Amino acid sequence: MTDLVVWFDGGCPVCRREIAAMKRLDRAGRITFLDLASAETDCPIDRGALLARFHAQENGVLLSGSAAFAAMWRAIPLLRPLGLAARNRHVGSVLEWLYVRFLRHRPALQRWATARDARP
């Protein structure tokens, strides 16, 4: 049984790269990764809301944004210190501020990653 469920946008090249890296780091298999691009993926909330922001469920609690990333980091031994630091409200606030800025640039990053993947 896994300790954490993570929903991700499998249609997003940036998301696919990041999740591939997290899967490699999750050697203990503590995280269940659910691809929202898959029709059979169950969603605890509206699929559009899950696609708009990163979501994870830790100990039955649904988290989004930087809090979801922090939960994922806590499940991976190498990244656990960063995930634990994110529990500090000041660190968490900075991470959320950075995440919201990332979301503004996500469409451009997706276009860049798609173009990069299309190169021979």
Rank of each mutant, 00 (worst) to 15 (best):
A28V: 04
A28W: 00
R30E: 00
T32I: 03
T32V: 11
F33S: 01
F33L: 09
F33C: 10
D35I: 02
L36R: 05
L36Q: 06
S38Q: 13
T41R: 11
D42W: 09
P44S: 14
P44D: 06
I45R: 06
I45S: 11
R47H: 04
R47K: 15
G48D: 14
A49M: 06
A49P: 05
A49T: 09
L51I: 10
L51R: 12
A52K: 11
R53L: 00
R53C: 05
F54A: 07
A56F: 03
N59L: 09
G60P: 01
S64W: 14
A68T: 05
M72Y: 00
M72N: 12
W73D: 03
W73Y: 13
I76F: 14
I76A: 13
P77D: 03
L78A: 11
L78V: 12
P81Q: 08
L82I: 09
L82A: 15
L84S: 02
A86G: 06
A86H: 03
R87D: 07
N88I: 15
R89N: 09
V91G: 00
V91F: 02
S93H: 02
V94N: 05
L95T: 05
L95G: 00
W97P: 01
Y99C: 15
V100Q: 15
V100R: 15
R101C: 12
R101N: 14
R104P: 04
R106P: 11
P107G: 10
A108G: 09
A108P: 12
L109P: 14
Q110G: 06
R111H: 13
R111C: 02
R111K: 15
W112D: 03
W112T: 06
A113N: 04
A113D: 01
T114K: 10
R116G: 02
D117N: 15
